[in-house]
Design a protein around this nucleic acid. Structure first.
Lengths: 349, 349
DNA sequence: CTTCGTGGTTGTCACGTTTCAATCAAGGGC
DNA sequence: GCCCTTGATTGAAACGTGACAACCACGAAG
């Protein structure tokens, strides 16, 4: 009359392991065994405990487990730009590994802000996270050393660092620039624009170096590369670069553009339409990353594809290895990029 | 000679609050006070403790805090599609609130998979997360009730649910469909295509209903709306719909299209270029969400803008309120969408 | 009958923090 | 000089779980 058991459940807060033990008429340790080493428990008691768990709706308390274990079962990926599909795809590869290891993967978006990045890193450190995957704003930031010094494994993603104190997974950017520009040269272009972010970014520097190498191989000097540097690497920046490009005297105006990023390339593409420049006839364009939208653009974009999914998966695997193997040796893995040729560089038949 | 103190630090693992206490020559409780109620500690001891903290590189252990507090200081947003910029922008609004409340926001990407979503929800439940923000695969899923039953506050984002058991923040989709189609009618269109996902999605249904309402107001029957339903809502789907549209006999072919999503609209735009249909002369296009790329498309896209950032912020605020106010009453907030007119519906002057 | 082993179960401690009642020292009022 | 107040500091308990040693009952071997 006073209220049935079922109703009580909804008001009771947070059934713990000991409530389960009481309900099943066994000791607390036995419940723990059912959860962690079911084989050590007799089938009879086990089913009784499992029934109690179901009835009470018991849910493990991760905080307590972590506290005991000293470390959590969570991985985190601190990504540079959550709005860039490239990073989301990388994250998908990591999720695969995390799932297999029964870890969860949480995403943190630093949005290219050093301040926000360090706030996240501090939080993750407090959480005693199992490991951190990160595409840092600045790969040489001391904040990363801070983490490793406290024993949290860190793997750099799509970035490298001097020395061998970190595991890292990256793609050969010099090579990427090289194959992009070589392709343009093969299409008959001799004056090429290099459109993209600041040269102090290692990645931009490498891709440019690759471009120069391809030119050199073909017998062209560095003067055949016209720099159109941009502050960020957004669609808008690409569009602006298009204006500047169109403003050059036709005698020295490049006939092809190599962009450091697909967003920039798409912006450039748009401004070509506005300025009545045909792609690829008047200007051939190569992008970088091969994001999904590159193929879907009005003029499908030739782009340098990076193995994003594999990038994420390998990064995850390295991290797992680093946490489990005490004699782990840091590795710097480098993948080769691949050129995907589409209509923005080759006239349709 | 045996190794200086500095070197020792790097090998010692995880300095705890008690190590700090020992180093500072105070009791354990005092250190805790320095961390949580600094005003109760004399300036003298406080600075001594702070020095010890810095020297040992002490980092709070969140697991232990959580265990004691019964609840963590983490919010999570389980988003439907991490690759859609719309959701990232929503998340940015939430981050703002989270930062103000000194909570961290972790992102989980369900990628439209019910299975993955429930795995994340289970993890979050075990973590005793402070609260969950979610754009669910299925708003009526019982998995959500599971969470609330255990006392974890849940706020629905960009989705609604029957009844008033949940806080939710959404945008008036009927209205969105209405203003989009009314705009098209004002431009002189009388036959309109409705291009987008399955009708069993509440959102799609609502937007279609709004479209019908606008037609009705203008004196047109439902036969003036041509359904071009797609399985998903990707760029590819939009492109396919374009093929189907072009295949219709010109007598009944719509002169305008209302898409349930900007990705679909961009795909449709692309196929128009391929099929030599001019936009907006031969086909006017309205998208939905006004993602960044809508304005950057070859023909800038007219789109229904949702207040994404505000959506996220309000959702976060409701969640905070629900966790702090014991007499909290669930609220269903609905915002009004706004039409952003661009070249895809109005011929440039 | 005793001893030993074994599978099953139990009780207790530890993890690192917060909280709160208890203690202590110092200073002010009588 | 004594008591009381106030403010600073301390010590112990508790949060929920996992690990591990101890324990028990039962049957087999000697």
């Amino acid at each position: 009359m006073e209220g049935s058991n079922e109703v009580e459940v909804s008001t009771t807060r947070a059934a713990g392991i000991k409530d389960v033990a009481a309900a099943a008429g066994v000791s607390l340790g036995t419940v723990s065994n059912v959860l962690n080493r079911p084989d050590r428990v007799s089938p009879n008691t086990r089913s009784r405990v499992e029934a109690a768990i179901a009835e009470l709706g018991f849910v493990r308390n991760e905080s307590a487990r972590q506290l005991r274990a000293g470390r959590s079962r969570v991985l985190a990926y601190v990504m540079l730009d959550g709005r860039n599909p490239f990073f989301t795809d990388v994250a998908a590869g990591m999720e695969e590994v995390a799932a297999k290891e029964e870890l969860s993967l949480f995403l943190c978006n630093s949005a290219n802000l050093a301040e926000r990045e360090s706030a996240y890193l501090s939080q993750l450190q407090q959480q005693r996270v199992h490991g951190v995957l990160i595409t840092p704003v600045d790969p040489d930031s001391p904040a990363l050393d801070e983490l490793t010094r406290r024993g949290t494994p860190v793997v750099l993603v799509d970035r490298k660092r001097q020395g061998d104190n970190y595991c890292s997974v990256a793609v050969d950017d010099v090579r990427g620039g090289e194959i992009a520009v070589r392709h343009l040269i093969e299409q008959g272009h001799e004056r090429i624009a290099f459109v993209g972010g600041r040269l102090r970014l290692g990645q931009v520097r490498d891709r440019r170096e690759g471009a120069l190498r391809a030119l050199r191989e073909a017998g062209f000097g560095p003067d055949h590369l016209t720099d159109l540097s941009t502050s960020q690497q957004t669609v808008e920046d690409g569009s602006n670069a298009g204006q500047r490009l169109a403003g050059l005297p036709s005698a020295i105006r490049p006939t092809a553009a190599f962009c450091t990023n697909d967003l920039v390339a798409l912006g450039l593409l748009r401004s070509c339409a506005t300025l009545r420049m045909r792609v690829p006839e008047d200007l051939a364009i190569v992008g970088y990353d091969d994001i999904e939208f590159a193929a879907a653009a009005t003029v499908p974009l030739t782009s340098v594809r990076q193995p994003r999914h594999r990038l994420g998966r390998t990064a995850g695997e390295l991290l797992i290895q680093e946490t489990s193997d005490p004699e782990h040796v840091h590795q710097q893995v480098t993948y080769l990029p691949e050129l995907v040729v589409r209509a923005s560089t080759v006239r349709a038949p």
